[in-house]
Design a protein around this nucleic acid. Structure first.
Lengths: 197, 197, 197, 197
DNA sequence: AATGAATGAGCCTTCATTCAT
DNA sequence: CATGAATGAAGGCTCATTCAT
């Protein structure tokens, strides 16, 4: 069975990449605010100043993290969908399998973007921009698959269905985190199945 | 039109209540970790020691906050449903109207419980217990209305539908926070409408 | 074999006595500065104000503690000497047996008076007065036994021997605390044995 | 006459050394617990953060203090013995002269190691390790001189005598601190004189 | 007597960032 | 590029004591 797990990465080429990799792990596992610059540089074995020669601030690092994670996560999921499906409908359902598998990996801490969103009240924060972009792309991905599935439906109808699936996806994401049980994603997937008939 | 907004409260009877009120506002607006004890006591105009004679720790205060908010929020929503609906189905739909109204109130920062969840990786935190309790109660509320609507369906079917609606509710909650646009809740409500037919 | 241990005390008659008893235990086990008034009143189950109606300050409580301990400890040791000895010389040696037994009781934390001395740099502190009194009395006790043993020696000679034994006693006290081994007191006792020949 | 006093030190090379020097003085004069990090940094004229870039904790600073003092104090005493004596026996007696001189220096506050011992009930504290090491070395120093003096005695006998002298030394140390009078060390020295005959 | 809220200075430690070297 | 000392506000929390009730 295909198991969702972060692909192991090659040894990072640069100090910057190494910092990014360390920060990615810590930001995800502990959250943005709970992770201090000190911890990052300690784990990287570099000096304070070096850190700031690579990133102008902790926030800038977090932006880089979200940008990178956007790419990684998308690749990760799209590869999973390709592995599983089949038809657009199969792929849409596979997105929820992806979620279920991910949640069952030991370190599941929810969605990095949602977690960062709730930690960031300021609407004009650059972090919020990354988060919105990521989620818009996810919605667009879903919409693409819905459009391929329902080739005869109106644009509006397709948008509506895509949004519904998206909301189900996001709701699953957060409730898996809350309850650490699989029923939220299973309920969501069943509903999507019905939607795609 | 009925507008969702926190009912104004009477002048607090005790310093403890005042602290709780101030903390509630700050925790909600800024998040748990971004709000310092210093800020709370400054706004309350009291000394550090006084704070700790009322609450044994910042975390204990946050637990008290979530417990109180659980009650306030439930009352708030249940009153809204009573105002609007009618039938159990109407009430279920009204829950999403509630969400839409709430989101349009100027200070919407999402769900206090979800926000605190993502700030709290430790699964054994007392905060997590409050969060889970709150969400379980919300799910139970929804399930009660679904059961009243579908009196002929099996228990399993009712559970399944309730869970779906719950996931749609939670997904709306978070996406309203992300996009500050109403479409997520509208898509969710439309889906619920279909589910209840 | 006779074992040194604090005699169990009757249930305290007054709140004051109870406070004193609790504080005695905590001051001895944790030291004077490490023991807070809060901990004392918590263990006593009384309010802050009540504490200060019984003792005008934490220092006053400590003075009361040392005064009481002076009496308790003296009784404790003198009873032990009476049990053991015999001749004045036997009693002097028994003082070191007393030390050895005491040290082997699980909670040995050294001499309360010496510990408080080292925690109290201010020479004019009321605590220092109690400490000095206690030690002067101990020296006097030893001198009395030495005088009884060496009835033909000059006053000066007796004083000199008493002081030597006293210094050996004090040195044992502190080194038992440091090494948690019995050799310091055994070496001291052997020396006293020779001195008394 | 040779007077015992801390040799004046060159202007410290580094901030770290300066901090250590200031802390050494304060820890000795006021005790470990009564000396706050705040006071240390105020006297050093540096910021809080700077302190913690040099020492990871107050306890780590205290360990550094005891390590340095171990070295300083040993040098101090050994130099004194070299200055005075002569034969091993002379040196052993000179150790008590050292004590007497030291005590008469205005700031005598007893032995830093003994003082810290009584402030530190936790047997597994890193401070306790330093204290034990220091005292073991002192005992070894005494034993070396005793062995040189009594070249014909058995190892056991030498150990026994060394321990006795050590206990006399420690007893003097603490009683000089208690009474601020010279008789304890004089009594001890007389006894040592007899022991070495 | 007894309560416990109130004080405010103090506790040790961490924060993100800067800058001279 | 890299270092790491320096900043100073802020982190959560405890201290001994007072005082109105």
């Amino acid at each position: 069975m295909f198991v969702v797990s972060m692909p192991t990465v090659d040894p990072p080429k640069s100090k910057r990449d190494e910092l990014l990799e360390i920060a990615s792990r810590l930001f995800y596992e502990q959250g943005y605010h709970r992770t201090g610059v000190k911890q990052i540089i300690d784990e990287a074995g570099i000096a304070k100043g070096t850190f700031y020669s690579h990133f102008k601030s902790k926030e800038a690092l977090a932006v880089a993290w979200l940008k990178a994670r956007h790419h990684t996560w998308n690749t990760w999921m799209i590869d999973f969908l390709a592995e599983k499906g089949g038809s657009p409908a199969d792929r849409l359902l596979a997105a929820f399998d992806f979620l279920e598998n991910w949640m069952q990996s030991c370190n599941y801490r929810g969605c990095a973007f949602v977690n960062t969103l709730t930690e960031t009240p300021e609407e004009d924060s650059p972090l919020r921009t990354e988060i919105e972009n990521h989620k818009r792309d996810l919605l667009a991905l879903i919409r693409g698959l819905v459009a391929a599935h329902f080739s005869n439906e109106s644009e509006d109808e397709i948008t509506q269905i895509a949004r519904t699936i998206y909301v189900l996806f996001e709701g699953s994401l957060i409730e898996l985190q809350n309850f650490r049980e699989v029923w939220p994603v299973q309920a969501a997937r069943e509903q999507v199945k019905r939607l795609l008939k």
